[in-house]
């Protein structure tokens, strides 16, 4: 454990349940580094998660943590944030959790623009249930429930977030942790719905089913196939084919929900209660 971030972990709860080579832990480290860099009060920070391997992260984090039901983390988090807007609220979710069962909550949360920081761990698979395809499994990918290859088309979840009204959208991966920490940190600074897709690797199910090699090979894939938005903007179209664009993809501030609600309450100052 790294001494400078140890305070953010429930060290007595370790070791974690994740498989060797899983990159969930790397992403969690970036989250706490971003929290530290932003100087957030640990007692005023709540981390909410859904159900899945990635969502188990809340159990290891030394904050008020809320491990909810499958797909519903954003709805629980909205209740926490609206009831007490002083709290910094983070949501940890998986690709299945957020984009499948939680898809409706996702688009509406993005639209509402409550000040939530959402980190989606995208390993392109349902890890916890043993390797079924998710709405973010690429076409053609193999999964236990797509034994002949996936005939569905995946979401570009960042584009969906932008279309649904998210005011901050970024993508990173578990190889380039400096970039990942930075984009989470910048999301914290955005007062509104901030969404970060973190590309993760699940060597045990997604990797094995799709013959992507070992954990190190999967990280190398991230290194070799992701390009930053800045680089992508300079490249001709044919050189960008098949690449995954990372960095801050969208930032367009808009009125934040709890702030707007407070304005309504303020009109009634002098009522029964402030």
């Amino acid at each position: 454990m790294f001494a400078e971030i140890e305070q953010y972990f429930r060290t007595e709860r370790l070791p974690h349940i994740w498989c060797p080579g899983c990159t969930n832990g790397i992403i969690v480290k970036s989250i706490v580094e971003a929290i530290q860099k932003a100087g957030l009060d640990q007692d005023k920070t709540v981390i909410v998660s859904g159900i899945g391997c990635s969502s188990r992260a809340t159990g290891y984090l030394n904050f008020n943590t809320l491990h909810t039901t499958h797909g519903r983390a954003l709805a629980f988090a909205s209740g926490v944030k609206l009831a007490n807007p002083e709290l910094n609220v983070f949501v940890i979710t998986g690709d299945g959790d957020c984009t499948s069962i939680g898809g409706n909550h996702f688009i509406h949360s993005a639209r509402r623009n409550m000040d939530l920081n959402v980190i989606l761990f995208n390993n392109n698979i349902y890890g916890m249930t043993g390797g079924q395809y998710s709405p973010m499994s690429p076409s053609g990918a193999k999964a236990t429930t797509a034994p002949y290859g996936n005939i569905e088309r995946p979401f570009d979840i960042c584009n969906l977030a932008i279309a649904a009204g998210a005011t901050y959208v970024a993508r990173g991966n578990s190889f380039n942790t400096r970039q990942l920490t930075d984009i989470i940190y910048n999301g914290i600074a955005n007062k509104g719905f901030s969404f970060v897709e973190a590309i993760a690797s699940c060597p045990v199910y997604y990797g094995r089913k799709n013959k992507l090699g070992n954990a190190a090979d999967m990280l190398k894939w991230q290194r070799d196939n992701c390009i930053t938005k800045e680089a992508a903007d300079r490249l001709p179209l044919e050189k960008k084919q098949g690449k995954v664009v990372t960095g801050i993809l969208h930032h367009e501030p808009a009125p934040e929900y709890t702030t707007e609600y407070q304005k309504i309450i303020d009109k009634f100052q002098g009522g029964e209660e402030s």
């Binding site: 519903r72 629980f76 909205s78 944030k81 409706n104």
Partner: peptide, 17 residues
């Protein structure tokens, strides 16, 4: 909220505060 599932979730979150 967007539906009753979310409404129930939100009141649990709020109650925890």
């Amino acid at each position: 909220m967007e539906d009753e599932i979310a409404s129930m979730a939100a009141i649990v979150g709020a109650s925890l505060t």
